[in-house]
Design a protein around this nucleic acid. Sequence first.
DNA 1: GTCCTTGCAAAAGTTTTGCAAGGTG
DNA 2: CACCTTGCAAAACTTTTGCAAGGAC
Lengths: 152, 152
Amino acid sequence: MENIMMESSAEFIDDRVDEFISRSKELGIKVTPQRVAIYKELASTDQHPSTETIYNKIRDYYPNISLTTVYRTLETFEKLGLISVVNVLYNAARYDANLTPHHHIVCTSCKKVEDIYDESLANLDVPDKTLGDYKIEGYSLLLNGVCRDCRD
Amino acid sequence: MENIMMESSAEFIDDRVDEFISRSKELGIKVTPQRVAIYKELASTDQHPSTETIYNKIRDYYPNISLTTVYRTLETFEKLGLISVVNVLYNAARYDANLTPHHHIVCTSCKKVEDIYDESLANLDVPDKTLGDYKIEGYSLLLNGVCRDCRD
DNA sequence: GTCCTTGCAAAAGTTTTGCAAGGTG
DNA sequence: CACCTTGCAAAACTTTTGCAAGGAC
């Protein structure tokens, strides 16, 4: 049970920023200093920052950037597949009275959430004690896909 | 790969509401009509409603209930373990520039999110085609636990 | 009757939108 | 120089808090 760290040296980050720039050109979106700053901020951390956090960090060296720009830019990047959203449940918290262990599937089109009770997914080989520095309390699997209604 | 449905007949729901009532008494919280309505609403669906959705449904037959009550009640239930929150990432969306497949672990105490690159979790036996009515696009595993800093 | 719970109103926090100015390709 | 992108301001939306009235035990 080993926790592999991703490389995140300065050169590695610059490489990713370069890749981001060429990818942006391919995709036909403009490479603005704000966009580079936002991408770089995200590429420099594994802390999965929120919009607000990214905004605050960038303001240290780019005081005029607006929060609106950060929101819009992250949305743009996400739609183009340049970054991903960790929170796959789309905004507001969803509640569940069912305390039986089960997993969830979200339709990426209509955002509906459904339960999955699947034998083969019921007992994953997840350590019940510690993983890295964490004492594991539980886990949940979140599948995403497109439901039948949305495929029609 | 079979998708087992949970029973959700009227009697079954009433049973769960009864159980909720006795559990509330054990826990020493008051059983108010609002609380019963909120619990029942949640127990009657597998759609994982948001606070707003629950509020709107209950208003049909309980027009004076306030949204504040629904928020406070769900929070109370969750803290007591009567229900669970599906969105384990705590509020705002979190972004990730790392598109390599990996999983996430959230510290339930400080809400920090970290990446996990773990061999044994890298290839789960998740169907790559369809599960039930869904065309699967991807999945992510969300572990929760307490990080070292928070355990001290 | 006590004290937890509710509803209202207001505040705080988060995300989106319209529009004119600015900058990239 | 065309038009996409930005910043500002305001609006829309979501969640939390304070406080007095009401209801459960």
